[in-house]
Design a protein around this nucleic acid. Structure first.
Length: 269
DNA sequence: GTTGAGCGTT
């Protein structure tokens, strides 16, 4: 009954999706159900979770059966304190399939009902990379390695986003009429001044190792001093199955799979 | 165990 999102999307064709942001990472659908259900008929509640840890991402989707109820919930629950945090309720802008949504309702659906459903013989190797990319940049919201990535990308508009919220931390906006259209009022003056510098001067230097201290092979050089136990018996060969699974073939796999003769007696190529 | 911009699953 209260287990939403367990059976997948029930029917989003006749339902309005609401996006709930700013919720605690511990808030679950069951916690929002009684809250949203009080303002209307909630058909489904889904809270995206990280595939790695499985923790909530901090936002949830509440589907209402009617738009009027959803609108009321947005106006009433928007700014409500949940679990000690003020949540932000608003109509979803994007659909589960990246479709356009108006007022929480999907106005554009996948026109795959036309022609045969067969896929086009275009590319076939591309499926997990897609969702992975999305996940990666999503899960990089914080933690620790976030700084690492930032250094790598030299910072971009990501910093702006973070800072933006800081300056936009005006609780005044909430609780007073739903005038969220003022958000886009900000003029976009800086357009090309994204990173300054020359666009062509960018030196694609993938090798940016300012710290030559780091060894090339961290795993090769074990700590000569730090060795409480000469070796790790329980980590090396527990049952004698794979003594060295990592060094199986650093260069290539056995030629029995790729080329019968990569570099010898090869007069054909 | 943590964090805090944003838009989604079997």
């Amino acid at each position: 009954m209260s287990h939403f999102g367990r059976s997948g999307p029930p029917d989003i064709a006749d339902t309005y999706s609401l996006l709930v942001l700013n919720i605690t990472f511990r808030t679950t659908a069951d916690d929002l159900f009684p809250l949203f259900d009080k303002y209307g008929k909630v058909v489904d509640i889904f809270i995206p979770k990280d595939r790695r840890t499985g923790e909530s991402r901090g936002f949830a989707f509440v589907r209402y059966k009617y738009a009027d109820e959803a609108s009321k919930a947005v106006d009433r629950l928007d700014g409500r304190m949940v679990d000690g945090r003020e949540i932000t309720v608003q109509f979803a802008k994007y659909g589960p399939n990246a479709e356009r949504i108006q007022k929480g309702r999907i106005i554009e659906t996948s026109p795959r009902s036309k022609s045969s459903r067969s896929r086009s013989p275009s590319r076939r190797s591309r499926h997990r990379d897609d969702y992975k990319d999305k996940d990666y940049r999503r899960r990089s919201r914080s933690r620790s390695y976030d700084r690492n990535e930032r250094d790598r990308y030299r910072g971009r508009d990501r910093d702006s986003r973070r800072r933006s919220r800081s300056r936009s931390a005006s609780p005044d906006r909430k609780g007073r009429g739903r005038g969220r259209h003022d958000d886009e009022r900000h003029s976009r003056s800086r357009s090309r001044s994204v990173d300054s510098r020359s666009p062509a001067r960018h030196s694609p230097s993938p090798k940016r190792s300012p710290s030559p201290k780091r060894s090339i092979s961290p795993q090769k050089s074990a700590s000569p001093k730090k060795s409480p136990r000469r070796e790790s018996p329980d980590n090396r060969s527990r049952d004698g199955k794979s003594p060295t699974p990592r060094s199986v073939s650093p260069r290539g796999r056995p030629d029995a799979s790729r080329s019968p003769s990569p570099r010898n007696s090869n007069g054909d190529e």
